[in-house]
Design a protein around this nucleic acid. Sequence first.
DNA 1: TCTGGGGTCCTAGGACCC
DNA 2: TCTGGGGTCCTAGGACCC
Length: 436
Amino acid sequence: MEPPEAPRRIALVDANSFYCSAEKVWRPDLEHVPVVVLSNNDGCVVARDALVKKLGVPMGVPWFQLRDQARKNHWPIVAFSSNYELYGDMSRRFHTVLAQFCAPGEQERYSIDECFLDLSCHRIDPMTTGHEIKNRVKQWTGLGVCVGFGRSKTQAKLANNIAKKQPAFGGVCDLTSMTEHELQALLETVPVQDVWGVGRKIAEALIRGGITTAAQLRRTDPKRIRERFTVVVERTVSELNGVPCIAWEDQPPAKKQIISSRSFGGPIYTVDELADAVRMHAGMAAAKLRQQGSVAGRVGVFIETNRFRPQDPQYSPFKSIKLPVPSDDTAVITTWAIQVLRATFRPFRFVKAGVMLDDIRERGVTQGSLFDALPPERDLKREKLMGVLDKANDKWGRGTLGIGSAGVKGEREWSMNRSMVSPRYSTRWDELREVT
DNA sequence: TCTGGGGTCCTAGGACCC
DNA sequence: TCTGGGGTCCTAGGACCC
């Protein structure tokens, strides 16, 4: 029999209103002004600061609706177009500070603004360490964070949620030092839909069955949960009980699917204009593919009409095709994508297009066709060309170089609207913050 | 007029094979 | 002419996450 494993202690550090905070760090004049950040195309609200949340603005509202509402109510809301170069750099700083608190394999960069730390092997007082983390991130990056400690990732997420929503905790919540009785009592205060892994549908079903709090979910019979739902929810119950079921991933695994898509700045009606956008997305997706050293075996294309206009005829097909030989070559992927597009196109009023790469595997270990006498030779000339493409787009910005007319910089009907974008303060010399 | 983008995992069901 | 069950692979769709 194996010795029982020592209990784990996992921290989840989560930045508060990350995109808004990343903007406000550079705009101290906006400290007391409500701020939102918009999705691509200035479509929806994807981030709200504390002041906007207090106004009762829900996540995901269309900006044109909020703008009118703000005008009517005299809310001085300031909106920013999304500035991913800025957020990416702020994220890098955030994770770099957190790396100081653990060994390399003990950090999992879960998302742009969330990070798990496995501190099981550190002799720490969680509350003290939690506040140290919070203070140091604030001091070095300007970002506010909350810290949650638990015996599993789900518990750590839950602790973080409590730290965020219950001011009495002061931004740090430690479930690992609580008695069973304290833990269960605290979880009584958490609605079941706040549990990580319980979304809208499952929450509805649970509540119908009389399970309304995290404490109740924790006490359910895993077998019955599995019969009623899936293994995913069963694992959540185990995790709530402090039994880790979700793997630790300190190295980000290679993507199994890569998507590039975007709404257009305005509606598009012709296949040639769609082809232009699809070429751009094929190029973007292929570049991501090369970056992780993979090839794709399937290329798919989707185009969409506007589902918010019920008066319009709707047509939103997705079609994919298996490549004769898996590839990471922009020209190859583009050619097939355009072919798929032309096969599905019908004249409608389109508002969005995208390219999806599937059946992704490591480059170099690909099996050639049975009928190939020799393994397919790698085309060194093409690889060199792709290398130049990637370097140029990396250095001078996306869409500097493309195949054919794809992604040549300039205004088109389908290019994005982002009229309220802030400077890239931290990554471009010519956009540095000026102090006068 | 204007309503995001990019992922993962699981399950069910059909095709196909032995 | 009739009839079976088990296994695998693939795909579509649903649910979740940030």
